[in-house]
Design a protein around this nucleic acid. Structure first.
Lengths: 152, 152
DNA sequence: CAGTTCAATGTATATTTATGCATCTGTAAC
DNA sequence: GTTACAGATGCATAAATATACATTGAACTG
């Protein structure tokens, strides 16, 4: 179990379990066969860009707030995010509405910004929704197709 | 200095200063003539809905992530938010784009959701931008007017 | 007024997270 | 093979935040 595998595992565990402290996460990882200390987890979370927060109901949760690694491969990064966290891509007038896992939207928005795609005028990410704004409906359609292909 | 005044002061201080711990905030408040302990600050921040987070550059910041007090007066709450944090309201096709102070967008989005306004199909809040989606351009124009009036 | 209740707050402490420092491991250079 | 170096990690602890409990004071009731 190397660092990269562990960080991937962390994302999976956090996505699938309600974790409210690094201590719990250490236990979950151990159960999954990955024994590391809280210190390592602390560093991992920072590197991945995950941080503790409360949602609107006050529940504690770790959300994905990207510290994107200035990718040399923006469309690859975007494709990976779409595959990992995407839940649906819809067209709405001159916009494309992306649904994704709770907490993942900011990260999604970041990789879309990083595409520097001509058809993207700008995008805003909430918690589980990203709205990507295009010039007009026609552009949005093309963009929507593009993103769907990217997401597989 | 009562609780409400103090919490208002906290928001002002956090908006105007780079604060990275409750300890610092305690000091700033003391300098402003409000002497309370870290424990009180901790409780205040939770009540207001402010939480520590890191922005994309890794800087620590307190952001406004609302625990809105099920207002009996949604449009009043919205008006207050617009006055306190708003920076501009623009029309864009079938959308209204609200700019606001960094970190304030989620709170802004929440109070707009709470309006349950007929013209609002939905909205997504980023960090300093809220996109409010309406049915068509005409509706968006009406909505834009409404919000501008609300914000004074 | 005495008694009751409740919100606000401080104190002390628990809990959670971050980090300085030492160690280990693997790789590259010689 | 040996030395040098860098990244990853643990250990111990510091720093930051949350909270259990006690206290106070204001508002209300009889």
């Amino acid at each position: 179990m190397n660092k990269r595998q562990r960080q991937y595992l962390i994302r999976r565990v956090l996505r699938d379990n309600p974790i409210s402290s690094q201590r719990e996460l250490v236990d979950e990882l151990a159960a999954a066969g990955c024994e590391v200390t809280q210190a390592t987890i602390s560093r991992d979370l920072r590197e991945i860009g995950l941080q503790k927060s409360r949602d609107r109901e006050g529940r504690v949760r770790y959300t994905f707030t990207p510290v994107t690694e200035e990718r040399s491969d923006p469309s690859g990064a975007c494709a990976r995010m779409l595959k990992d966290f995407g839940r649906g891509i819809e067209l709405a007038q001159n916009m494309v509405v992306l649904r994704c896992d709770p907490g993942a939207a900011p990260g999604m928005g970041k990789v879309i910004d990083d595409l520097h795609h001509d058809l993207v005028l700008g995008c805003v990410a909430g918690d589980d929704t990203v709205i990507v704004v295009s010039k007009d409906q026609q552009s949005a359609e093309a963009l929507c197709d593009y993103l769907r292909r990217l997401g597989g």
